Amino acid sequence: MKHLGRCVELATMAIKGGNPPFGSVLVDEHGAVRYEGHNETAGGDATRHPEFEIARWAAANMTPDERAAATVYTSGEHCPMCAAAHGWVGLGRIVYASSSEQLSTWLDEMHATPPPVATLPINEVVPGVPTEGPFPALADAVRDLHRQFRSQHRSSGRA
């Protein structure tokens, strides 16, 4: 829960920078945080998701065995792009606070434009990767962050 809580903090930081609320942490098999980040898509590069950045960092800085033993904690279940990157570099378990299904429901409730890529469960993209989530207490906090982000962008004309 400590690492998922940090992911929610990072998602909050993302909003402050004008980015959608997603935050992620890479933890090695010994429990050490190796990388953390949040969405950085506000500059126009829609691939700047923290899970994608984690996969790229891990490929450059960890051995295949270290990657397989690591866990990625994230505020929201990986999108298909990030799930594929996770699978391609051979990262281990994924633990998420909120699911893709929840995100789709929330976006519908907020009358938000859906993402350009389908919101699929991780295991539809990367069969067999161990996953755990969602966690209801944190999912509520993530939902609130999405509402805050959408509200800010509606008032700025960018929603």
Rank of each mutant, 00 (worst) to 15 (best):
K2F: 08
T41W: 08
R67P: 06
T12A: 13
Q148L: 11
A59P: 15
I15N: 10
A60Q: 07
A46K: 15
G17A: 03
C79W: 08
P64R: 05
L120E: 14
E66Q: 12
V95H: 04
R93I: 02
R150H: 12
H78A: 11
A60C: 02
I94S: 13
P136M: 05
P50A: 05
R147A: 12
H78Q: 10
A118L: 01
T47V: 05
Q148M: 07
V8I: 06
R158G: 09
P64D: 00
I94C: 11
E109Y: 10
D65H: 12
A139N: 05
A59K: 14
L138Q: 00
H111Q: 11
V33T: 00
L103N: 10
S100C: 06
S75E: 09
A46F: 15
Q152V: 13
F22Y: 13
G17R: 05
I122Y: 04
S24Y: 00
V126R: 11
P136E: 03
R93P: 00
P136C: 01
T63A: 06
G92R: 04
R158Q: 15
A42N: 02
G44R: 08
G92E: 01
P50D: 01
V125Q: 00
S98R: 09
Y73I: 02
V117F: 06
A60F: 05
P64E: 07
K2V: 03
F52P: 09
E101N: 12
V27C: 07
P20Q: 08
L120R: 09
R56T: 09
V25I: 02
G31P: 03
S156I: 04
A58K: 13
M62C: 09
T131S: 08
R143Q: 07
A58L: 09
G90E: 12
A32Q: 13
A112F: 15
P116K: 13
G90I: 07
S104T: 13
A84P: 09
A58S: 13
Y96G: 05
L10E: 06
V8G: 04
T119H: 14
M81T: 14
T131G: 06
D108K: 13
A97E: 04
G43L: 06
T131Y: 00
A83E: 11
D108C: 12
M13P: 03
R56W: 10
A85Q: 11
H38A: 02
R158N: 14
A84H: 12
M1V: 02
V117M: 11
D65V: 13
L103E: 08
G128V: 05
G87I: 02
G92W: 00
N19Y: 06
A32S: 15
A159I: 12
A32T: 14
L145T: 01
